[in-house]
């Protein structure tokens, strides 16, 4: 799995539960290092082991840990760059939802080796969507829960009120239902296009 994904798991564990906790995981797994390199690729099994060990240490189901990671990716101040890149997807949450189809392509433009699962949005009725999440290439890790956490945090970011439901897995694809209750529920967070130049 790409280093960026491993690094995201590591940063989540460190920033949320502390360095000691993270060091414990790397030692129990006998990784031989304590930090993932964001720009290297690691064996898929390492990612699975780390996530498994993380869930055991936290005494939480893996899906819950994955969802927390998704939320963390958008809401932690240390990862502002990622939130910004996601906000480029659209001016409101609906536009953002529609931009998800292009997300794997956008990611490939920036980091060619980083493969994300196929994402497909379908609108069924006004304010009712479903997102199909394909399998994470080369990995046994379910990406659906990560998208659940990420979507919830992005809705907050845009100030939208949504109801999300994971509808399970069909032929390797996970389905998430998105009900948009209100597009401008809260003011959301600012997105200043030129902010990184200031």
């Amino acid at each position: 799995m790409h280093g960026l994904i491993n690094r995201a798991v590591e940063r989540f564990a460190r920033d949320t539960y502390g360095r000691e906790m993270w060091r414990g995981i790397t030692q129990r797994l006998d990784l031989g290092f304590t930090e993932f390199e964001a720009m290297l690729t690691y064996d898929d099994k390492i990612t699975q082991d780390v996530l498994g060990e993380l869930a055991v240490s936290l005494n939480k189901p893996l899906t819950e840990v994955l969802e927390d990671i998704g939320t963390y990716l958008v809401s932690h101040p240390g990862l502002e760059a990622l939130r910004r890149l996601l906000r480029f997807g659209g001016t409101d949450f609906v536009e953002f939802l529609h931009s998800l189809n292009d997300l794997p392509g956008r990611v490939r433009l920036a980091v060619p080796e980083l493969a994300l699962p196929v994402l497909e949005l379908e609108d069924h009725a006004r304010d009712f969507y479903s997102l199909t999440v394909g399998p994470l290439p080369g990995g046994q890790v379910a990406f659906g829960p990560v998208m659940m956490g990420l979507l919830r945090a992005m809705a907050d970011d845009y100030g939208a009120l949504v109801f999300l439901e994971h509808k399970g897995r069909r032929a390797g694809h996970e389905i998430i239902e998105v009900r948009l209750l209100e597009t401008a529920f809260a003011s959301g967070r600012a997105f200043d296009l030129g902010a990184h130049l200031r």
Binding site: E37, M39, L40, L85, F88, R106, V107, L109, A110, H196
Partner: peptide, 17 residues
């Protein structure tokens, strides 16, 4: 603009590596 930001972030990670 998206590409510039994404590429700068990726470059920064590569530079650190």
């Amino acid at each position: 603009l998206y590409l510039i930001e994404a590429k700068s972030a990726a470059m920064e990670a590569s530079r650190k590596l």
